Computed example of a mutant assay.
Amino acid sequence: MNWGGSIIAGMGAFMAFIIGSVFYMVGQDTDTLEEDNYYDKGIHYSEVYTRKENLQRDQAMPTLRLKGDSLCIYFTTSGNKGMSQWKRPSNARLDTEQHFQTAADSVVLPLASYERGNWQIELTWEGEGTAYQSIHHLFIP
């Protein structure tokens, strides 16, 4: 094969790659840079801001500790009721929610169903009539 044929074959392969990439990107249903329900989150952001402000004002940041195959969350007040959203940065299909309610100042959540690796845990709870929200990063070994 001469140089001209090699150049034409290389250009053809590159064009096929570009066209294939275009069809793949257009065929994708979601955009990873866009929130699923960003209008709803934008409307209710003042509530989120108030919860985070309450967290700072009351110094109510909970403490998370791994103990074996469970996660212990220690709150500053007792009688907490809320929800934990588990978000996996590398795979959004693994995102889950857990609801909790406790009369004491701590709650234990099982970790058996969670994969190893990095997790972002968003806690939203109410303690002694005040709403709070915090975000924690956790690595499950």
Rank of each mutant, 00 (worst) to 15 (best):
G4C: 01
G4V: 04
I7A: 11
I7Q: 02
I8T: 07
I8L: 15
I8E: 01
A9P: 00
G10D: 00
M11L: 10
M11F: 05
A13S: 08
A13C: 08
F17L: 11
I18P: 13
I18L: 06
S21L: 05
V22A: 05
F23G: 09
M25H: 03
V26G: 00
V26D: 00
V26K: 10
G27N: 10
T30P: 00
T30I: 05
D31A: 00
E34W: 03
E35K: 12
D36R: 13
D36Q: 11
Y38V: 13
Y38N: 13
Y39R: 02
D40Q: 10
K41L: 11
K41T: 13
K41E: 05
G42F: 07
G42A: 14
G42N: 13
I43A: 14
H44Y: 04
Y45K: 12
Y45D: 08
Y45I: 03
S46P: 14
V48S: 15
Y49R: 12
R51C: 07
N54Q: 07
L55D: 00
Q56C: 08
R57Y: 06
R57Q: 12
R57M: 07
D58W: 00
D58G: 01
D58F: 06
A60F: 05
A60G: 11
P62L: 03
T63K: 13
K67H: 06
G68H: 03
D69V: 14
D69K: 12
S70W: 05
I73M: 13
I73D: 04
Y74L: 08
Y74P: 01
Y74C: 03
Y74I: 09
F75N: 02
S78V: 03
G82V: 15
M83K: 15
Q85K: 12
Q85D: 04
W86P: 00
W86A: 05
K87Y: 03
R88E: 14
P89D: 05
S90L: 09
S90I: 12
N91H: 04
N91S: 05
A92R: 14
T96C: 10
Q98T: 07
F100P: 01
F100L: 10
F100D: 06
T102S: 12
A103P: 00
A104P: 09
D105Q: 15
S106W: 04
S106C: 14
V107F: 04
L109M: 14
L109F: 10
L109V: 15
P110S: 09
L111E: 00
A112Q: 10
Y114C: 03
Y114D: 02
E115C: 01
R116K: 15
G117K: 13
W119I: 06
E122F: 01
E122N: 07
E122Q: 08
L123R: 13
L123F: 12
T124R: 13
W125C: 14
E126L: 12
T130L: 15
Q133R: 15
Q133W: 04
H136T: 01
H136N: 02
H137R: 15
H137E: 11
F139Q: 14
F139C: 04
